[in-house]
Nucleic acid binder design. Sequence first.
DNA 1: TTGATCCATAAGGCTGCCTTATGCCAGCCC
DNA 2: GGGCTGGCATAAGGCAGCCTTATGGATCAA
Lengths: 301, 301
Amino acid sequence: MSAVRVFEAAARHQSFTRAAEELGMTQAAVSYQIKILEDRVGAPLFNRLPRQVTLTAKGRQLAPAVTEAFEALRNAFSGVEDAVQSVLSLTTLSTFASNWLVPRLGRFRLLHPNIAVQISVSTEIVELVRSEFDIGIRSGTGDWPGLETQMLFPNQFIPVCSPDLLQGVDMREPIDILKLPLISPGDPWWQDWFAAAGEPNVDLSRRPDNSLGVQQLEGMAAIAGQGVALINPFFFPEDLASGRLVKPFDLLATTDRSYWLVYPKARRRSAKVEAFRDWVLSEVAGDSEAAACRADTKTGA
Amino acid sequence: MSAVRVFEAAARHQSFTRAAEELGMTQAAVSYQIKILEDRVGAPLFNRLPRQVTLTAKGRQLAPAVTEAFEALRNAFSGVEDAVQSVLSLTTLSTFASNWLVPRLGRFRLLHPNIAVQISVSTEIVELVRSEFDIGIRSGTGDWPGLETQMLFPNQFIPVCSPDLLQGVDMREPIDILKLPLISPGDPWWQDWFAAAGEPNVDLSRRPDNSLGVQQLEGMAAIAGQGVALINPFFFPEDLASGRLVKPFDLLATTDRSYWLVYPKARRRSAKVEAFRDWVLSEVAGDSEAAACRADTKTGA
DNA sequence: TTGATCCATAAGGCTGCCTTATGCCAGCCC
DNA sequence: GGGCTGGCATAAGGCAGCCTTATGGATCAA
């Protein structure tokens, strides 16, 4: 089979030496391969003239078809390889996509205009090691065998709501939150947050469970004044900075889970993967700086 | 490169196991090759599902083009291989072609209707070992390295002429031939024949040298009554049998050379070569029988 | 004649491919 | 539900085939 490849090059160059150069091997190897192919075909494909080789009749019959076939192969593979180089496909959690990634993606496109990003949103964790995705964003503890992992930010929660909702409500202790409607009260993180706030025995089971299940929507509901949502502040930096969302209590409930950027170890050398990873990490670093800055101005005020 | 071949089969079958069967290797080898190709392309080409594999998007993009390219290759090679199988090309000496081979070729075509014979006539000895010819007919001593050789018949000479030419000529001893015009008196075999006849010192240098150089033409000239030609009786069996040519003396000059059928050792297993060789040998055997038969009838008469 | 170029060939080493053996996973069937 | 089967992955190991180096032959050019 590789003999065919050698033949193709030799036929194009009408020279074993040039073909060897093109293929990065020695002239002897070309001669060897051509002989293999001739034995296999049962007839000589080249006339050996003193200082050159020329195609025999059968060689001339073969050469154009072979070259054409290899052109087709080259085109097909280069097409796919271009796609592989220029399309980065990632699977991500819904809220990360809508509240973190998509708003910033324009900057990535500016940095890397030749890399197209395909986002697939899914709640389930897809098997990344042998999937078609280059990168995944997932929440967990970071121990995924076979995957390179980069922690992005912790999975923390804090209750937020619209400032209007607090009007006239006496909000002194965390338990006072229960005076307001909760968004997704069935979310078990609520129990954890109240526990972290020193109220381990809050019973939310009798509240109507209008769970939205997706932080993005919960945050939107909170902004709309429909109640108190438990959200990760990393996903609502603008709303918190602008005051559209306020924190009744500055108590973050921390979890053992974080958001991670992961990708198969096998593809860690891929340029597009490196580019995207570095960009995400720089964005996360920017977030932390901004958060620190806001904290400073707040304490300063 | 061979990984592409494996991919093509696997994509067609949508199964590594079937592909392995088709290619005559193990399923493990297919798996190995596909992995090689995927690493090289930088993206998976198959989705590994529980009891089957399916093409990924990139695999689907690749498969048709690859299959098409391989079809083209297969067609090109099978076309050439058919030609190799069905066309027997031979290089032969002019007289052998015209006076021996061509008149009998019809029988070969009847025996092997699927083998086409291409005859190339040349006086020079072409290098057979790596030429495009499958078979050669040459005159010599039979020591050609790298060639399989089959002796056909000896290179013997005997003077012949038209019976009309002998009218009124006293033809008792070989030297009497010189009373008649010689065809191609410059032919050195004349000297040899006279030497064999006990006349080593015949001087032919002063005769006009109207050499024809080709026995066929010399024989035709003799039949036409233009003189005495020195010919190989194997080439004129009909003319001798019918009496169009007669032998003034039944003295064959033998030489150390013979006519040989030769072919490259490398192609001795080729069906067409074997078929042609066997046919030629059977024809030669038939000649000998016929000659023996004629000799019998002559002595019987 | 000498040098340069191009191909063939022989010898030898090493890589890479294939096989064998085993494990895993899921579906199927009793 | 527990074997059983079918399909693929993986590891280990051996061997073949490919490539390289080195050399020779043949021709052309200077």
